[in-house]
Amino acid sequence: MRTMEVSLFIPCTVDVLLPEIGVATCRVLERLGVKTVYHESQTCCGQVFLNAGHAQKARRAACRFIEIFSKDDFVVSPSGSCVHMVRSCYPDLFPAGSLWRARALDLAPRVFELSQFLVDVMGVTDPGGSFDATVTYHDSCHVLRGLGVSRQARMLVDAAAGPRRVEMPGADSCCGFGGEFSVRFPEISVAILKDKVQSFLDSRADVLVLNEPGCLLNIGGYLHRHHPEKRVMHLAVFLDEAMERGSGR
């Protein structure tokens, strides 16, 4: 089989605050025999600008992104919302019939969230390895409703955790992050977040797995302060740890 080459799309939050997620993404792909490349000129996809209403800044970020990634066959990211930005929002940033819109549309179908890439493109549902803890999965809004990805991540978690994956009530409801919303309306944001954390606690799982750095900062930031014994893990880190331990189940 021809070696697949994947271009890593490491969002700014991951680069700076959560680099272990980027490293794990890279390692999981490489363990599965994929060759990885990383364009060092990449910065930010522009999602934060678009959501805040700064379309001009978002457009500049989009042009940069398209220039940098346009030659790649597969672009893979550990952030569902950033992938959603590229796949769904980029084309609409440019007027109909424009060259940039055409380029955005051309790139969109080659950009994938990690679990989407593993399951839908590579056909890998069991990357090997095992994870010895009770685990639950949080459906991030942009992963679930933006990309339509949910089953894929659960399959991958199931492969490692087996019957120790439990569902929490309201797994598909928002965690209250919403980017600038969490800073602008902290009271409301935290009220939503508390309910999400409560449903995690009620599920009795030790680990909350998700594939969106924004939710991870939000839920993780709250857990770190109030429930330090609980753990929130990005799917990439989860898979990397499971594979590291080997399939000793």
Partner: peptide, 9 residues
């Protein structure tokens, strides 16, 4: 607002 109830890495 963020830090009222949350830490940040």
């Amino acid at each position: 607002g963020w830090f009222s109830s949350r830490d940040l890495p």
